[in-house]
Design a protein around this nucleic acid. Structure first.
Lengths: 345, 345
DNA sequence: ATGAAAGCGCTAACAT
DNA sequence: ATGTTAGCGCTTTCAT
């Protein structure tokens, strides 16, 4: 019952000032649910202005049962792909009068659990969730009855809503692009093996190789963290063995780590190693060389995610979005085509 | 009074189940403010487990007057420097049991106002604020009595708390580093002229030049957005005139835009243009070439920001942090020293 | 069209 | 050590 803030004007004072009941003040503020006579409305508005009244969102949330808040749970907001998604989600949510509670788990599964519990206690109206793990805390969320949209793939048998691109297809498409360049020795730097998205991306890579009749060499699967350092370390390791001619890095950060490691050995892309990556952002487009990358339609996905939370019906809808293979210079295309429009102008 | 969620267990049910009063349930949950007999405590805990009770954070916030939430207002969460700061802030805040409400204004001043109003209505316990503009909405925040820490410099006469590095010093130091390399023709790519941080960074640059007896050429001040595209455009413009030998880019994104533009003209750093930038992140360390950059102690600053909100006393404390000039390859140092430890291992 | 009042689920002061 | 209850500031139903 401690009130840390300065005195706050309440609805009662406004009502007194306007000479009405508190209910009418609510009707004016909320534009409903009942009509208010024009004269009364004006008196109320004047009283609001005069008193400097500001509705208390917490009290409103308690009474109305909606916090007008979504929770966003992500592994790490410092990942540019994720922060670009967060940006789009916030824009979208705010257009609907809602704000995002940021839950950044710092790539830590225990922390992720704490955050989800915390956000659920806060009665968020919905959760937008990317787990650090292949076993997201779905039960917990469903038990609370909170609408939830997953932003990655989950075990098919889980009855959850999800939004994603088909990552296996995308990985296959990216790898196939390298094959079309004529490369036959194609390695992959991927995330932790147990994660579903890692598995999808590996299997897409494998599929493309098999379709082209190329050998799948297990020693050319470099599993590491989805970080720059991970890509760097994996590449160092790769450089210690027989060097492939091309590489599929399963996220943008790994690709950057890879380029750095290459450069420390006097190597570069696409000259010594052709490179494509997954989930590129503006960074890929501006990098030198620009990165050929699988692009997810972040803005559209954000729109859909918010829409799904708004229209929540408890059914486990799954939406799949088309990805785009954005051609940059890292795969060697730039030396093949001379007249390509620049990415960045 | 709509309850969108499934039935939620309340404290009353727990009390009934445990055969105690509701107050005791609170005391158990909150570990106070009054002691509870061990036996009772255990009965309550058992009842909580059995019923699946979860405290309602909103009701708690209304009754206690604290939402255990901070608002974070930033120009754009997709900016890597900002998202790394957001990451650190969230970690720090959560250690204190609080969560961040993300207010991403999308570089739009009107949106920023809406967001601040929204967050204030939500009764956030504090605000961490970086404005898109030189005139932040301080009055509004102060009128609400909400603790607030600014993360950039504000007009000195404003009585607000702020945390920052001395940007003029940092800019001067960065520029001086270029001068120490022997470069005499040093340009600057900066942000919008009216912003205080732009002015600080320009004046630091200017000061360093003057101290070295070098000419300050107004045509070598390229004002643009703090974005990759901005850096790109400014560099294109620069390339149309007489090319300087060195450049100070006033944020990391501009630096990347610059490198891209250079590359499209067959030029590169540090060979054709030595480059240092402001507010580098891990991206600078991993880029090829790695970027020489002013680094802010993001983690410490986040710690301090949260601490200031916790210990709020209404006084306009200002904290200045030491920056670090992180040496990379973009300024030419790499060719001078051969034995430098790698940045990224 | 408006007023009165019953919650929303909790905290904590006031009882015992 | 524990029970009872008055708020917290709002939404909305039930009256009028």
């Amino acid at each position: 019952m401690t009130k840390p803030h300065v005195h706050r004007v309440t609805r009662a004072e406004v009502a007194k000032e306007a000479g009405t009941s508190v209910a009418v003040v609510s009707y004016v503020i909320n534009n409903g649910p009942r009509p208010v006579a024009q004269a009364t409305r004006e008196r109320v508005l004047a009283a609001i202005k005069k008193t400097g009244y500001r509705p208390n969102g917490i009290a409103r949330a308690l009474a109305s049962g909606t916090t007008r808040t979504y929770g966003l749970v992500v592994p790490n907001i410092a990942n540019p792909f994720i922060s670009s998604m967060a940006h789009a989600l916030q824009q979208e949510a705010f257009a609907d009068g809602r704000v995002l509670l940021l839950g950044d788990s710092g790539d830590d599964r225990a922390r992720e659990l704490e955050l989800i519990n915390n956000l659920l206690h806060r009665q968020v109206d919905g959760l937008i969730y990317t787990s650090v793990d292949r076993h997201p805390y779905i039960d917990l969320i469903q038990a609370s009855g909170t609408p939830c949209v997953m932003l990655d793939r989950v075990e098919p048998e889980l009855n959850v809503c999800s939004i994603q691109v088909n990552e296996q297809h995308a990985a296959r498409r990216a790898t196939r692009h390298l094959i079309e360049h004529g490369y036959r020795d194609i390695a992959i730097i991927c995330g932790p093996q147990e994660m579903l998205n890692t598995q999808d991306r590996i299997s897409g890579w494998r599929l493309a190789l098999e379709e082209a009749g190329l050998a799948v060499r297990p020693e050319w699967i470099f599993s590491t963290d989805y970080t720059r350092q991970g890509g760097y370390d994996a590449t160092k390791q790769m450089l210690a063995g027989e060097l492939p001619r091309a590489l599929f890095a399963t996220n943008e950060q790994q690709a950057f780590g890879c380029l750095r490691a290459l450069s420390e050995h006097g190597l570069s892309a696409p000259k010594d190693l052709a490179l494509v990556c997954f989930n590129g952002t503006l960074e890929s487009a501006f990098n030198v060389p620009s990165l050929t990358t699988v692009r997810q339609p972040v803005t559209q996905m954000a729109k859909k995610a918010v829409e799904m939370l708004k229209k929540w019906d408890g059914q486990p809808h799954k939406y799949e979005f088309d990805f785009e293979l954005e051609i940059g210079g890292s795969c060697g295309c730039r030396s093949l085509t001379t007249s390509r429009k620049s990415q960045v102008t």
